[in-house]
């Protein structure tokens, strides 16, 4: 299983690195951002191995990117989005979206509906995972600030 995970790890790493370059991220942040995408995809693959569900792995890896980005942001003293934006790219379900588009073009209505629902489900799973963790960190930040001012 470990050997199977090597090509996806490297390819996710390079793809995220490429997006980091496009978004003009520099230095240490760029390396950390690249690992964010690779890490999220590894979490996805491991989660996918243990569950039959389509959306749960996306939910868990959505949580993992948010977690990674929040930690990296406080380590490197940079905005969270520097790591989050490139990191989310490998999770975008390109294959599902493309197939949905194809079924739409060829007039396969039921296939299109199915694909659309799947895409929305995956999108919702990723964003809910992300929102959950981001909200927790936001709460922690405001709580610690409130403590300071008291």
């Amino acid at each position: 299983m470990l050997i199977d995970m090597f090509p996806p790890f490297i390819s996710a790493l390079f793809a995220t690195f490429g997006f980091g370059l496009l978004y003009n991220i520099r230095g240490k942040n760029l390396i950390a951002a690249a690992f964010c995408g690779a890490f999220a995809w590894m979490v996805y693959l491991v989660a996918d191995h243990f569950t039959e569900s389509m959306v749960i792995p996306y939910f868990i890896s959505g949580m993992s990117i948010a977690f990674y980005s929040e930690i990296a942001a406080s380590v490197f003293k940079a905005p969270v989005t520097v790591f989050l934006i490139p990191g989310i790219i490998p999770l975008v379900p390109g294959l599902t979206i493309y197939r949905t588009m194809e079924t739409c073009l060829f007039g396969d209505v039921s296939g299109f509906a199915q694909g659309l629902v799947n895409t929305l489900k995956i999108g919702a799973a990723i964003s809910l995972g992300l929102i959950l963790i981001s909200s927790v960190f936001r709460l922690l930040r405001t709580a610690s600030k409130a403590k300071k001012t008291v």
């Binding site: 996806p8 390819s11 996710a12 390079f14 793809a15 490429g18 997006f19 370059l21 496009l22 390109g94």
Partner: peptide, 11 residues
């Protein structure tokens, strides 16, 4: 652009 295209093909 090239790197991303190539990497995603493996991905």
């Amino acid at each position: 652009y090239s790197l991303i295209g190539g990497s995603f093909a493996i991905f």
